[in-house]
């Protein structure tokens, strides 16, 4: 039944956690799975955060894999574990993110939600091994595509600051200690969790300006046409 005093539809933040699961991540796979579990568990524990931020997990190596379709994690009964192996093909990941956004945003609207600009949190420990990642990224963040997401990146290991700055639209962070991979993973996912909790309180995407154990990578300046 509808009552007087219309209340606005509730906002939803589609959140894409994009994880590099290439072979070089193998030493960190246990840490990655453990921290991922903590993040999903924590969000599931907070109805207000879970309702606000629906989460999708995409892993990528030689190919991209949809590990968890965008969902309100309150309904989850298990958390997927990832394994690591293969190349670091960024382009595959960007294409899958775009494909999923085109599926997820209409679905959320169909559910009566107002949809905030999707936000991608990407973690990688190396540079891209494919040749067309720049084109794929350009298509993902193309200004003419109304559903283009914000992209925030976190790098460690062999990740390259120059590349991170090219595949980020908002913020990019590079681990201060490149080889403290487990710490970087924990800090990355911890910061992601804090971002979601804070954003769910304010209704805006509250991205971090600093992250423990990471230094901020400068992004290219944007100029008016």
């Amino acid at each position: 039944m509808t009552y007087p005093g219309t209340t606005p539809a509730s906002d939803c933040l589609p959140t894409y956690i994009v994880l590099d699961t290439s072979g070089s991540m193998n030493p960190h796979v246990a840490s990655l799975n453990k921290t991922l579990e903590v993040v999903v568990d924590s969000v599931a524990d907070s109805p207000r955060v879970a309702e606000f931020a629906h989460i999708s997990i995409i892993s990528f190596n030689t190919r991209a894999h949809l590990i968890l379709p965008l969902t309100d994690v309150q309904g989850l009964t298990s958390i997927p574990e990832v394994g690591c192996g293969g190349e670091t093909n960024y382009g595959e990941a960007f294409r899958m993110v775009k494909e999923r956004i085109n599926v997820d945003v209409p679905e959320l609207r169909h559910q009566g939600r107002t949809v905030l600009r999707p936000t991608v949190f990407m973690l990688t420990d190396g540079g891209p091994t494919d040749d067309d990642w720049q084109e794929s990224f350009a298509e993902l963040v193309d200004d003419s595509w109304s559903r283009r997401p914000h992209v925030v990146t976190f790098g460690f290991g062999d990740a390259n600051a120059g590349v991170l700055s090219q595949i980020s639209t908002k913020m990019a962070f590079l681990a201060k200690d490149a080889y403290a991979g487990n710490t970087a993973i924990t800090n990355f996912l911890g910061e992601l969790l804090r971002t979601l909790i804070k954003s769910s309180s304010t209704g805006n995407v509250e991205l971090p300006t600093e992250v423990e154990g990471f230094k901020t990578v400068s992004l290219p300046r944007e100029y008016m046409e």
């Binding site: 524990d45 109805p47 989850l76 958390i79």
Partner: peptide, 23 residues
């Protein structure tokens, strides 16, 4: 956790009370 079954002692927001008993 309804997912992992692991327990954590913490303060609980009233957020949780605004859910059904079975939840």
């Amino acid at each position: 956790s309804p997912i992992t079954g692991k327990g954590e002692t913490r303060l609980i927001e009233v957020d949780l009370l605004a859910k059904p008993d079975e939840y």
